[in-house]
Computed example of a mutant assay.
Amino acid sequence: MRILLTGATGRVGQYTLAHLAAEGHTVLATDVRPPPATAPAFPANVTFVTADLTSIPAVDSLFDAAKADGVIHLGAYPMPLPGLDDRELHNNNATSSYNVLRTAVDRGVTRIVQASSVNAHGLSYAPPGHTKFDKFPITEEVERRPEDAYALSKHECEIQADSLVRWAPETRIASLRFHMCRPDYETSWPDTRALDLFAWTSYDACARACLLGLTSEGWSSHEIFNIAAPTVCWEGNGVEEADRRKVGQSGEGLKLPTTLELLKRHWPHPYEVDEEYFAKNPRGTIWVSTKAERMLGWKHDV
Rank of each mutant, 00 (worst) to 15 (best):
D196H: 13
R208S: 06
W189G: 00
L195Y: 06
R182H: 14
S221L: 08
R193F: 10
M180H: 14
R172W: 10
C206T: 13
A174C: 11
H179S: 12
T192M: 09
S188A: 15
W189N: 02
G213M: 07
F225S: 05
T187H: 08
R182V: 15
W219Y: 11
C233S: 14
S216G: 11
L197T: 09
R193G: 03
S221Q: 13
E217C: 05
D191F: 15
A194T: 04
I224K: 02
P183E: 14
A209D: 03
S221T: 15
P183L: 12
P183S: 12
A194C: 02
S202I: 12
S188R: 02
R208N: 02
W234P: 01
I227M: 01
C181S: 14
L212Q: 14
S220C: 10
N226L: 07
R182A: 14
F225V: 09
E186Y: 15
R182I: 11
M180F: 15
S221I: 11
M180Q: 13
T187K: 05
C233N: 11
F178S: 00
S175G: 15
A209F: 05
S221Y: 13
T201P: 01
F178C: 01
L176R: 03
Y203F: 14
A199P: 02
R193S: 11
A174R: 02
A205W: 06
D204L: 11
P183Y: 14
L197W: 00
T187R: 06
N226V: 11
C206Y: 07
G218N: 11
A229F: 13
S188I: 13
H222E: 02
S216E: 04
D204F: 12
L195T: 11
H222I: 07
P190M: 11
N226A: 08
T215D: 01
G218R: 05
A228P: 00
C233M: 06
L197E: 01
